[in-house]
């Protein structure tokens, strides 16, 4: 199953990177959202894929019998999903604020922090 996942993960990353390379904030945001899923799938597949058996120990058993899905990547991803959502929301609101102030979502026109043709620094002490 892993080779198929590898191809899928590759596609996720390619799309995410392509969107991140855009000049427009909204596309970049979509890229960030997809990048989160890509990374989660990468971690998921690295922990090996097993069909259909969740890592839940049966009633009145002390440990699971037979193979179950790897619980560790799942625990990592679960928190990662929530964190990347928080991060995504922050970026979204930040770009919305930037849009309100600068009235553009084109990053080429967002030059407040690093203005074009910056004057050389003063040579006095």
């Amino acid at each position: 199953m892993e080779p198929i996942f590898a191809i899928l993960v590759g596609l996720f990353f390619a799309v995410a990177v392509y969107l991140l390379l855009s000049k427009f904030i909204i596309r970049v945001l979509l890229g960030v959202a997809i990048l989160g899923n890509a990374v989660n799938l990468l971690i998921f597949a690295s922990g090996r894929i097993l069909r259909d058996v969740p890592p839940v120990i049966g009633a009145s058993l002390d440990m699971s019998v037979g193979p179950t899905a790897n619980p560790l990547p799942q625990a990592l991803i679960l928190t990662a999903i929530v964190i990347s959502f928080s991060f995504f929301s922050f970026l979204l609101v930040l770009s919305w604020r930037a849009y309100r102030v600068l009235e553009t979502d084109n990053t080429d026109e967002m030059r407040v922090a690093e203005p074009e043709g910056d004057a050389p620094p003063p040579l006095r002490y």
Binding site: P3, I7, L11, F13, A14, Y18, S22
Partner: peptide, 20 residues
């Protein structure tokens, strides 16, 4: 842009294959 994106995607695909 597409070339860079494809290279990154392919690279991570190969990485995952190696790992698994």
């Amino acid at each position: 842009d597409a070339t860079i994106a494809a290279a990154c995607g392919l690279g991570l695909c190969l990485l995952l294959l190696t790992v698994t």
